[in-house]
């Protein structure tokens, strides 16, 4: 286990390093400087500003400085908001994004498991059909369409929740619903498939033959075994939520990093784009690592001890 963990952390750092390197050089390929109204400035003034951002040094030096900075949590200075360190922009905005992400994850996964299990237990009945239709809708309808619909009906027409902005819990309801729809549908589908498979297995037959009650079999044997693989889709779900958050935060004017990312793309704020890219990758890699470890712990059949390879 320790060996496996060490290997995984090594790959994580390697991946992180590659991500930093690739984004750095990609951003260097792009035109665009921190200068506003470039034509109006004299060459001396331009040089001064570029020097302030450290852009006069040779590229390899800039790269080393950047990599060194990233590992100390320093992502440079934003082009868009002059004198604003990017690390501050991100740390001040990551709170709402994490909160929304966690809420959406819980709201997606828990009901998703229940609905999926219900569909499998009542296979080929109207319950199954209904849950299948709901999950197809959840997978198909883009989160931003759903977000606008929620805004229109629950916010504008029924005045149940605020339509935008960021304040207390009430402000999180609509964006969380919009974000949770697709993880909910994915989880429900996945759980249903797993559960159908488990319900057909021999040990369920045995449990039934022993005379266990129907729900006893379902809870103790079927549900628990079908939940194990569900852990593996947490990673993809996290990606899903991250992707969704960029547009959902925009629609609901939430001060999160997704909204910041889109804003920096539209204003060519390269240091911020790079930083958010790195932050997103780190979050995803950590989620993937944690789910892999959890998977190994909860499923005794798959002991990730390094001998598997």
């Amino acid at each position: 286990m320790a060996k496996y963990l060490l290997k995984r952390v090594f790959y994580l750092l390697l991946t992180l390093f590659i991500v930093i390197t690739v984004t750095f050089f990609l951003m260097k390929l792009l035109p665009g400087t921190p200068l506003q109204n470039q034509q109006k400035l004299s060459p001396a003034q331009q040089h001064l500003i570029l020097k302030q951002y450290g852009l006069t040094k040779p590229i390899w030096q800039q790269y080393l400085i950047y990599v060194g900075g990233v590992f100390q949590g320093n992502f440079g200075t934003s082009f868009q908001f002059s004198d604003q360190p990017v690390s501050y922009l991100i740390s001040s905005r990551i709170g709402p994004s994490l909160l929304l992400g966690l809420q959406a994850m819980i709201l997606g996964v828990v009901p998703g498991i229940l609905v999926g299990a219900l569909g499998a237990i009542k296979k080929n009945t109207w319950v199954d059909t209904t849950t299948t239709i709901i999950s197809i809708l959840g997978i198909s309808i883009p989160s931003f369409v759903l977000a606008v619909l929620l805004q229109y009906f629950l916010g504008l027409k029924l005045h149940l929740f605020p339509i935008a902005d960021w304040g207390g819990f009430a402000y999180t309801v609509l964006p969380t619903l919009a974000l949770a729809a697709s993880p909910f549908a994915d989880t429900a589908r996945f759980t249903r498939t797993e559960m159908v498979d488990v319900l057909n297995s021999d040990y369920i037959e045995l449990a039934r033959a022993k005379g266990l009650s129907k729900w006893g079999v379902i809870y103790h044997h079927a549900l628990r075994n079908s939940l194990i693989p569900v852990v593996t889709i947490i990673g993809p779900l996290a990606v899903n939520i991250m992707t969704g958050s960029m547009v959902i935060e925009n629609i609901f004017s939430i001060p999160g990093i997704g909204e910041q990312f889109v804003k920096s793309i539209l204003t060519n704020d390269y240091p911020t784009i790079m930083a958010v890219t790195i932050v997103y990758s780190v979050m995803l890699m950590v989620v993937l690592l944690i789910t892999d470890i959890v998977y190994g712990i909860i499923d005794p059949r798959i002991r990730i001890s390094g001998r598997s390879n």
């Binding site: 991946t15 984004t23 990606v239 991250m242 793309i265 990758s281």
Partner: peptide
Amino acid sequence: QRVIEIIMSIPTLVVVVLLILI
């Protein structure tokens, strides 16, 4: 496979955005 793993641990949308910018 390592290459794929590395690509997969970057959120797709971020890759798409970077490519579009370039």
